[in-house]
């Protein structure tokens, strides 16, 4: 279990202490029905410092970051922001729920793509993500999904095999390095 002090600093600015468990976040969440823990329960776990359970939930990876919870909260708790912190912690500590690890894999692939190109190369990302996901759990349906769309996208001029790259890619990499390596540039 984390110490409360550590909890406090990571969740600073989210007003997590103000939550009085009304459940309005859960009531408005478009994906609450898919979650193993409800948004209000995740906030409660954070209040109690029981981060392990929250980090291992599938709920944090089901979240679509639609900000409805944060917007409607009567106590102005940044519930979506709390889930961001939980996802980051879960990823860093390798606690992501296996059932939804593909969401994490996708987001990691996304960031990796940006790091290299400065902008998103969709074809590269999709290919990379699918290969990773396939290698991880032999997800053949996922591998095949959307492949049928490719010709249609191509036909509509929406698929760019050679994606855009920014000119100054070195600076992008330096920004990533400064944000990922603790202490540097911070």
């Amino acid at each position: 279990m984390e110490t409360l002090e550590k909890v406090d600093s990571a969740f600073a600015g989210t007003s997590v202490e103000a939550c009085y468990q009304c459940g309005k976040c859960t009531g408005g969440c478009p994906v609450a029905g898919l979650m193993d823990l409800m948004p209000n329960q995740l906030v409660r776990l954070v209040q109690l410092g029981r981060l392990e359970k929250a980090m291992a939930s599938t709920a944090i990876w089901h979240c679509v970051s639609c900000q409805t919870c944060t917007t409607r909260c009567p106590q102005s708790v940044d519930c979506a922001g709390i889930l961001d912190v939980l996802r980051q912690m879960s990823a860093e500590q390798g606690k992501a729920a296996p059932e939804l690890r593909r969401v994490l894999v996708f987001q990691k692939a996304f960031l990796d793509n940006i790091r290299r190109n400065g902008r998103l190369n969709e074809v590269e990302l999709i290919g990379f993500f699918k290969t990773l996901a396939f290698l991880k759990d032999f997800n053949i349906p996922l591998l095949m999904k959307d492949t049928l769309l490719a010709p249609q996208l191509m036909q509509r001029g929406k698929l760019h095999v050679i994606g855009e790259k920014v000119r100054d890619r070195a600076v992008v990499r330096r920004i990533f390095d400064r944000c990922t390596k603790p202490g540097k540039g911070a």
Partner: peptide, 18 residues
């Protein structure tokens, strides 16, 4: 000129500073 990606959901989910 030479804009870069905003990071989108991936960045705010995985790396707050980024």
């Amino acid at each position: 000129d030479d804009w870069i990606c905003c990071g989108a959901t991936a960045a705010h989910s995985l790396n707050h500073k980024l």
